[in-house]
Amino acid sequence: MKLKGRLPEGHYANCANGYRIHYLDEGQGEVVVFLHGSGPGASGYSNFKGNYRHLVDAGYRCIIPDHIGYGFSDKPNDVDHPLSFFVECIKQTLDVAGVEKCTLVGNSLGGVIALGMALEHPERVEKLVLMAPGGLSDLAEYQQMPGMQKVFKVFGSGEPVTPAVMKDLFATGLMHNPEHATDALVEERMQIMQIMNGHVMATMQVPNLVDRLHELECPVLGFWGMDEKMMPENGIMAMAKNIKHLRLVLATECGHWVMVEHEAMFNRYCLDFLQHG
Rank of each mutant, 00 (worst) to 15 (best):
D80Y: 12
A132H: 10
N47L: 08
H180G: 02
E253I: 10
K150F: 14
G111N: 06
R189S: 05
E123Q: 11
K127N: 06
F86L: 09
E261L: 03
D66Y: 11
G147I: 08
E88T: 15
Y269L: 15
G135Q: 03
H11I: 12
I90S: 01
V79H: 10
H176S: 12
M196E: 15
K241E: 15
L136W: 09
M239L: 10
G116W: 06
L3W: 12
F170H: 13
G156F: 04
E141S: 11
T172D: 07
P65V: 08
M259C: 13
E179R: 15
P65F: 08
H199I: 01
F86Q: 04
T252S: 15
H121T: 11
T103R: 07
S84G: 11
C62K: 02
G116F: 09
M131S: 10
M259T: 07
V87S: 04
V260R: 14
L119T: 09
H36Q: 08
P207I: 10
P76E: 07
E217W: 01
S73A: 02
L209W: 01
L185H: 03
N107I: 10
S137F: 02
D211G: 10
G37T: 03
G147D: 12
T203E: 12
Y12F: 14
A42T: 00
F34A: 03
P76S: 06
A132W: 04
D211S: 13
I195E: 13
E126F: 02
Y19T: 13
R61V: 05
N107T: 10
V258G: 09
C102Y: 10
C254W: 05
Y60G: 08
F86S: 04
D138Q: 14
K229C: 12
D183F: 00
D78T: 11
G69R: 15
F152C: 13
G198L: 08
G29T: 00
V249R: 15
V165N: 03
A181Q: 03
A251K: 14
G39H: 06
T162M: 05
V200R: 12
L169M: 11
M117A: 01
M131E: 01
G69K: 15
I68C: 06
T203R: 06
V125K: 04
L83E: 07
S157Y: 09
D66T: 01
R61A: 01
P160F: 14
V161C: 09
G173L: 00
M166K: 00
N208E: 01
K4T: 11
R53P: 06
E253G: 07
T182Q: 06
T103I: 08
G27N: 05
L119W: 00
S38P: 07
L213G: 01
M175E: 01
G222A: 05
P163W: 03
L128P: 13
L248F: 09
I192F: 01
E228G: 02
V200S: 07
N51A: 09
L250E: 04
G50E: 04
Q144F: 04
D138Y: 10
F72H: 12
A58I: 04
L209F: 00
C15N: 15
F223E: 02
P82F: 15
F170R: 14
E217I: 11
T162R: 03
